[in-house]
Amino acid sequence: MRFFWAFLVGGGLCVIGQLLIDLTALTPARILVLFVVSGVALSALGWYEPLADFAGAGATVPLLGFGHLLAQGVLSAVERHGLLGALTGGFSAAAGGIAASLVCGVLASLAARSKDQC
């Protein structure tokens, strides 16, 4: 059942993104920023956690989940370190994804070559 909801919720969040692309003048970069900031806001309001419990990767893999991750990280860091946690929490929580992308980027730049699209 978890798999079904992951597929449905993940696909649904992508459809929201597609509707924003097709129906508004928002560029993809703006939509991604909107998703991440919305993820932080929804998580702060306590609305994203239930979705993540329910849909698993369907909620955490889309960029809204990245925002949720940042917000959660900040929350627990503030609990432990006070105001300093507001600065350290986000990056600590997101470190895995960002560092993985960064390392992959460096490796790919060494291994792969830019190719024509035709």
Binding site: A112, S114, K115, D116, Q117, C118
Partner: peptide, 13 residues
């Protein structure tokens, strides 16, 4: 195409 893409739009990949 490729020189224009990387300058005006996005990386090819």
């Amino acid at each position: 195409f490729c020189a224009a893409e990387r300058q005006f739009r996005f990386p090819l990949e």
